[in-house]
Amino acid sequence: MRLSIDVTLDYNIDDSAEILLQVEAAAMVDQHLEHQDMRVFSADPIRAVPGEDAIGQRTWARGTGHFRVEYNAIVAIDRASIDFAELPATPLWQLPGDAVPYLMPSRYCESDRFEGFVHAEFGDLTGGALAAAIGKWVQGNLTYKSGSSAGETTALRTFADRRGVCRDYAHLVVALARAGGIPARCVAAYAPGVDPPDFHAVAEVWLDGGWHLIDATGMAACGDLARVAVGRDATDIAFMTVFGTAWMNHQKVVVKRLD
């Protein structure tokens, strides 16, 4: 699978602000960057720093007045589809150190509030069987509705409202998985067929020695996703974090299959 990615961010910045960008697809074993180019229209220099867990990179920029970013890439994805429902659970004491933080509650994924529900709803399921059941439950019990949530919406609120957008689906999958003893993280990604076209958010769970993607919205298969960044929740994977005030003029995300 090869994806063509075309992104434009066009904003006005009140006065001046530091901006942290995460829009570049990550170079990883299962996704190869055949081409990429990012242009930040700013009078100030930009600076790249590693992303969370050394996946991808963040770019620091300064915006003053009109601020524009253009990014395009071609990404080749070579990722086998795995039925992770058959994968065993990893005993917690055998988890690698970098997976342990993804067992813990975070700002948008209050996993400690879901432990009773996970036990009651999913019984004795563990490992891949539990992760698959969680993904199926979230897909079957939430309604995708643009504009139904806000920047402060957490997994607990999404659970109560039973609706949301992709980040809300990802937050709820992550919170439920962590409540069931499975390390889980949020992933910012590009995917074709996302409606409306936008940056996409999915979940990733640690099973049997590796990370496995789950898109509970049902809009993308694991082989169609190009990861941008990973993290505890939306705090870590936002495509643009403005330390100040910004107003959107225009934003475009176009992702197409090339073969």
Rank of each mutant, 00 (worst) to 15 (best):
A220W: 02
D233C: 12
L213W: 06
A170F: 12
A188Q: 08
V173N: 04
S4T: 00
I46W: 06
D6T: 01
Q251E: 12
A27I: 00
G135A: 04
L156I: 12
A89T: 01
V194H: 06
H119V: 15
A170Q: 04
R227Q: 12
Y169I: 07
D161I: 10
E24H: 03
G218R: 01
T235D: 11
P91E: 03
V187D: 02
S106L: 03
F122G: 04
M240W: 02
L130P: 05
D6Q: 06
V205M: 04
I74K: 07
A188I: 11
A234E: 06
H32M: 09
R113K: 15
E70C: 07
V69C: 06
G218P: 05
G180A: 13
V253A: 03
L130V: 08
I5C: 01
R2C: 01
Y144S: 04
L33A: 10
G116S: 14
F199Q: 01
G244R: 01
S148A: 15
G147A: 13
A221E: 14
F199S: 01
V173S: 07
V29C: 02
V173M: 09
P197H: 08
G147Y: 08
L172Q: 02
A25T: 01
G63E: 05
A170Y: 04
P197V: 09
S149G: 12
L207T: 02
T143V: 13
L9K: 00
Q31N: 09
G193T: 08
G56S: 08
G193S: 10
H32G: 05
E18A: 14
G56E: 00
G151H: 04
A89N: 06
A226W: 05
R68G: 12
T241C: 06
M28G: 03
D6R: 09
V100Q: 08
A184N: 05
E110R: 12
A220D: 06
N249M: 04
E70P: 02
V187M: 08
V174F: 11
D198N: 13
A85T: 14
A188G: 15
G244M: 02
I5W: 00
I5V: 05
Y144D: 01
A160H: 15
G127H: 07
V23P: 00
A179C: 07
D112G: 13
V7C: 10
A48S: 05
Y169Q: 04
S106G: 03
G244T: 04
N249W: 07
P88I: 09
D233A: 07
A189S: 14
G218K: 01
D236G: 00
